[in-house]
Design a protein around this nucleic acid. Structure first.
Length: 898
RNA sequence: GGACGCUUAGCUCAGUUGGUUAGAGCGUCUCGUUUACACCGAGAAGGUCGUAGGUUCGAGUCCUACAGCGUCCACCA
């Protein structure tokens, strides 16, 4: 009686997973410095840090499943595999979340009521709680990341990196303070970047007003107070009589004004009347136009979203209220021409803050992406130290040169497009939570003040106050800038700040891990993050941040909708883990997916993979019960089936390895499942019930199936490994063992397999009697007689009831023949791979030969030499030689197959 | 307005450079408790590969146009 007799019939994931994870962690298996063996090749993945805004969602689960798969694979292959975990402070997102929570607790204006210090304490403690939850959830997913190196985008060392980067970029003139038009969120009272804007389609009234001799259209009448320029296309014949710079007196909202004619080709002659007035302070297009023509600009709306005194009687009104009243007044004055109630346009809202974006001209800090600067080191193998380049050029070249490869490739085009349209990056934010801008001002009052108050509005003069870049105060009388940095500024450094940069000692220790191997993340943050990491890394280190950027798709529900709380269709990975096990959840997120393609997830899918984990458990249980103890006896193949299953194992191992290397995880998993379930369980284990003495081979198969599956399903495989009593821990087992033996493929077994399958089908289709007839024919056919004789027991077992016929046939000494049936037997054998291969090759040869002949005829006829241009002839010749080469290889193939 | 993706079995999806009779999982139907597993086994049915052209000896795969769905980007006030 083996000690395995009493193993439970079903695998219960929830009862073993936590202990297994703890044992990995305790044994330092996640720490590359403590791994067994000499590991010269470093392999590093830096985890995209989840935001400390609460809990993980299913998108994080995909990320963890894929990254863990890659890191486990590389670890088993003997790489010095490091996966650095971490979390992101997510500045605005976290602050907004905490504000919201405090409001729910009854505070009206948490920031005002608490003040900077107290409020920050609240945010920090919330962030800490989130981090604790996240750590726990990351562990639940089975992530084999090195917790001893956990990092946080806002910890002290990362702050050093941020300050150092800011200092360098400021020195190089890449970070500048300036008065520019930015996206202002009046609700959260902060600037947000172009990428943090969500556009919402809306229908709004579109008004046409009389403006002197013109008619102008607008959906925002409340901004029109300062409009004293009227713009038209220089080549518009309708307005040819007006000249650039011409002054026109006209009646407007608050009385008569003088308007100046401006001609500019940005104007769309087709739109409306082909004339518009401009509001440079509150519109991006108008701002640029005003810059081009050096026009005056005036602020109309304050940072609270109310009209300023320029609006006269409307001063102090909020935007929407003012709009109605302005329209009413213009109507009364007889200046309203027309209202289109169904005008469709988009409005900008803040992704995080939720407010309606109001462009404003404000004094902010920017990273200049198009300004040339002198490189501090040789960079990307193209530029030398001291060369003049722009950040844009660096970002482009990193991908163009192939130093960073984006998977799937089609996203590279989108990446380039984004870079080409990139404007200077506004990095200052008027929020409290984040890396404080390391700038100090000498002049009292220039830096001091609360976010969102008037102090950061553009200066009146051109003189900049004296400033210092430092993380500590330069002394008395210096005030630090109250703003914080865009969260992506610190995220951009993530691949190397996590490795210790700029601390020389730490960085030198970890230098070999950079560039990291792969950055795995959802395609939705390609721009936010990937491009910025490339920028920072290329600028500071002269190298790319990662060799590959693997982009996974977004997870959707069964109907293809985005998962969202409001729809109630969210599958929380941590809810389903207790029910189906982590391995099943992981598989459901990896299988049936391709990079960049969205994935539909359903509980049914997870259940399917739960069934598979259980199948693997039972395969193992059966093997263990059969063999008693997994020894290391002689595992030389003895029978046909042995050679077959072992050679298949080697093939599958090689194929799975190459597929994982190419990021074809789903395909690799399918092939493995096919082997495990379709070959090993359905065939070989059945045969093992009849053919005895396979203990060593079975142990070998089990061992290697576990190894191959481990990156996909770490828990169940490790659990079986331990249960079986294999040496050490599976997590650090060596992947390469699998290729130890490489038998030649065994076609004969395929013949046998096909034969049994055909008999089963016949029996199901036409009944036992018909099947008997065919069997008799089979054994009579010389092609298969020997094969069947040699494997009599196996065939009987596999074919079950039908094998009655074999018994009969044996009794007749194989002598019975049924007229005409020999053909059937041959057909069965003929459907086997070896014959198929030959047929296929032969058909291809025939087709190609025919084609080549027809080409030769055409050439011989001189059709091409006399009439056709040279390019056609060379094209034909090329095709001819291609076809001939193909023919040659095919002929060789047929020869090889015999 | 531009770009990209998707359209293949009832459902969810594979299909690498063009090459037999287009695959998998789930679901459906029929059978089945045999030394692991019913979270199982055996078998079956089910596809004009979105539409229309084109290139080719040969097209799910390449080209063109169109349709539907989806995503991203964009300064039509």
């Amino acid at each position: 009686m083996s000690r395995f007799q009493d193993l439970p019939k079903a695998y219960d994931a929830s009862s073993v997973e936590d202990a297994i994870y703890a044992s990995w962690e305790m044994s330092n298996a996640f720490n590359p410095d403590k791994l067994p063996g000499t590991r010269p090749d470093p392999y590093c993945i830096v985890m995209p840090p989840p935001n400390r805004t609460g809990t993980l969602h299913v998108g994080h689960a995909v990320m963890l499943a894929i990254e863990d798969l890659m890191i486990r694979f590389q670890r088993m292959r003997g790489k010095k595999a490091l996966w650095i975990p971490g979390t992101d402070h997510a500045a605005i997102a976290t602050q907004v979340k905490v504000e919201q929570l405090l409001r729910e607790q009854g505070m009206k204006d948490p920031k005002k009521e608490l003040g900077r210090e107290k409020f920050l304490e609240k945010v920090i403690s919330f962030a800490e709680e989130s981090a604790a939850t996240i750590r726990n959830q990351v562990r639940k997913m089975g992530s084999s990341c090195d917790w001893t190196r956990e990092k946080y985008t806002l910890d002290a060392e990362r702050n050093r990196a941020v300050v150092e980067m800011f200092r360098r970029m400021h020195e190089d003139g890449l970070i500048e303070r300036g008065d520019r038009i930015v996206n202002w969120d009046p609700q959260s009272k902060t600037v947000v970047s172009d990428d943090e804007i969500v556009w919402i389609d809306e229908k709004a009234p579109f008004y046409t007003f009389k403006y002197g001799p013109f008619e102008i259209g607008t959906s925002r009448p409340e901004t029109k107070f300062g409009d004293k320029y009227v713009v038209m296309h220089p080549e518009d014949p309708r307005y040819a009589s007006f000249e650039q710079g011409q002054k026109i007196e006209l009646e407007w909202i608050n009385g008569p004004i003088t308007a100046t004619v401006v001609k500019d080709s940005v104007i769309d002659r087709e739109f409306g009347t082909g004339v518009m007035t401009i509001t440079p302070w509150h519109d991006n297009v108008d701002y640029e136009l005003a810059e081009r023509h050096a026009l005056d600009r005036e602020q109309i709306i304050d940072l609270e979203g109310r009209l300023l005194p320029i609006a006269g009687e409307f001063a102090g009104l909020p935007i929407l209220e003012a709009r109605k009243k302005v329209v009413e007044k213009l109507k009364q004055k007889g200046l309203l021409v027309n209202v289109d109630e169904n005008y469709a346009h988009r409005i900008a809202t803040s992704q995080r803050g939720g407010g309606l974006i109001e462009p404003q001209i404000l004094r902010q800090w920017f990273v200049r992406v198009t300004k040339p600067f002198a490189l501090r080191q040789d960079t990307l193998g193209k530029w030398k130290k001291g060369d003049q380049v722009t950040l844009k050029e660096l970002m482009r070249h990193a991908v163009e040169s192939g130093q960073t490869k984006i998977v799937p490739e089609r996203f590279t085009k989108i990446y380039y497009h984004w870079i080409d349209n990139l404007r200077d990056w506004c990095i200052s934010r008027q929020i409290w939570f984040g890396h404080r801008i390391p700038v100090w001002y000498r002049e009292p009052g220039t830096g001091n003040g609360e976010p969102g108050t008037g102090n950061r509005e553009p200066g009146t003069g051109n003189e900049e106050p004296e400033i210092r870049v430092s993380d500590v105060s330069p002394g008395a009388g210096w005030d630090q800038d109250p703003d914080t940095l865009d969260t992506w500024f610190s995220s951009g450094l993530w691949t190397f700040s996590t490795l210790g940069w700029p601390d020389e000692k730490e960085w030198n220790k970890n230098r070999a891990y950079h560039p990291t191997a792969v950055l795995e993340t959802g395609y939705d943050i390609l721009f936010f993050w990937i491009a910025r990491m490339v920028l920072m890394s290329a600028y500071a280190l002269g190298e790319v941040p990662f060799r590959d950027a693997y982009l996974h798709g977004l997870i959707r529900d069964e109907q293809g909708r985005k998962m969202s709380k409001s729809l109630g269709n969210v599958i929380d990975p941590l809810d389903v883990i207790p029910k189906y096990g982590t391995d099943a959840v992981r598989l459901s997120l990896v299988m049936g997916t391709t990079p960049g393609q969205d994935v539909r997830l359903s509980e049914a899918k997870i259940e399917g993979f739960r069934n598979f984990t259980n199948k693997l458990w039972n395969i193992s249980r059966f093997i263990l019960m059969q063999i008693g103890e997994p020894g290391t006896g002689n595992r030389e193949p003895k029978t046909l089936a042995d050679r077959w299953i072992l050679s298949r194992l080697d093939e599958v191992a090689a194929s799975v390895t190459s597929k994982i290397e190419k990021y074809e995880f789903s395909s690799a998993g399918e092939e493995l499942r096919d082997y495990t379930w379709g070959y090993l369980a359905d065939w070989y284990l059945e045969i093992a019930k009849v053919e005895k003495g396979k203990d060593a081979i079975l142990a070998h198969l089990l061992r290697h199936v576990l190894i191959l599956w481990h990156p996909f399903m770490p828990f169940v495989t490790e659990h079986i490994w331990k249960t079986a009593g294999f040496d050490g821990q599976l997590i650090v087992a060596s992947w390469s063992q699998v290729r130890a033996q490489h038998a030649a493929p065994v076609q004969e077994f395929e013949v046998l397999r096909q034969l049994v399958t055909d008999m089963r089908r016949l029996r199901a289709d036409q009944g036992v009697e018909a099947a008997k007839q065919v069997e008799i024919a089979l054994v009579a056919s010389s092609d298969v007689k020997k094969l069947v004789e040699e494997n009599m027991e196996v065939v009987k077992h596999l074919a079950r009831a039908a094998s009655v016929a074999f018994v009969g046939a044996v009794a007749f000494g194989w002598a019975t023949t049924v007229s005409g049936s020999a053909t059937i037997g041959l057909n069965v054998a003929g459907s086997v791979d070896i014959v198929k291969e030959k047929d296929k090759a032969q058909k291809e040869i025939d087709a190609t030969r025919k084609y080549v002949e027809s080409l030769n005829v055409q050439l011989a006829n001189g059709e091409f030499t006399s009439k056709a241009p040279a390019s056609v002839i060379s094209g034909m010749k090329l095709k001819l030689s291609e076809a001939e080469m193909k023919l040659k290889t095919l002929e060789e193939k047929v020869k090889r197959l015999g």
